[in-house]
Design a protein around this nucleic acid. Structure first.
Lengths: 115, 115
DNA sequence: TAGGATACTGACAAAAAAGTAAGTATGGTG
DNA sequence: CACCATACTTACTTTTTTGTCAGTATCCTA
């Protein structure tokens, strides 16, 4: 995890837009690389284990998958359930908030397929 | 303009997803920083000159604005009209393809405002 | 003839995102 | 006791994106 500089022009500017623009807020949550793909798989398959996601997200590295899952979890879009057993078992699914993105995700998918 | 490496893992991977996933294709066109904000202003105000866009996009640099407008134009989302006069006058507006993103943009805006 | 207005362009540097590869933990199995 | 499976973690490097800032072109006006 690399922390961002807090006083870079980019950071300050991003904060301004997050405070003043709904689109920017939405994009911050789902816009990064992989995030919306993760959400889309969870939307389709409801519950997926870590390595099941990994298999579906062709080309993702473990580092990225973990990082993006953590962001999605911190933002409240994804729920992480840990089963106390060995070997470990962790399941991911959409939270209620995550599910509320369904129509956006479907529209984007449909638009991409038809244009 | 800095050109990307064509054989980096990221590039190859991006190509794979563009070919196989509608969401990724959509996100490539509207997902980058500023792009959807530009589209949103054009959606609202129909036609804007270069420096009018610049005033609205708080904090954007000229370099970024030009770069993003060029990407949007190359992707066929935005139409650029040059008037041969001095000082120069250039107008930007949504193409038909760009306008077809309206519902996605509105949904994202609405979602960001309510969540 | 020196600005002014508008829409850019280019070189260089900083910041952010992503890739690579090796390591951690733990109980069960051979 | 070595090894397996699963879900991560960490340090380091490369790639990509963005910021900064000075410069270009052209006709008009003072």
């Amino acid at each position: 995890m690399v922390k961002r500089k807090e006083n870079s022009t980019s950071s300050l500017n991003e904060n301004y837009w997050k405070e003043n623009c709904g689109i920017t807020r939405t994009l911050c949550l789902i816009g990064g690389h992989w995030k919306i793909n993760i959400l889309a798989f969870l939307l389709k398959e409801k519950i997926l284990r870590y390595h099941e996601l990994r298999k579906r997200l062709h080309g993702i590295s473990e580092r990225m998958l973990i990082a993006k899952l953590k962001e999605l979890e911190n933002d409240g879009l994804v729920t992480r359930t840990v089963y106390q057993q060995v070997p470990p078992k962790v399941e991911y699914s959409l939270s209620e908030l995550g599910s509320s993105l369904e129509s956006i995700i479907q529209l984007m998918d449909h638009w991409g397929e038809t244009h």
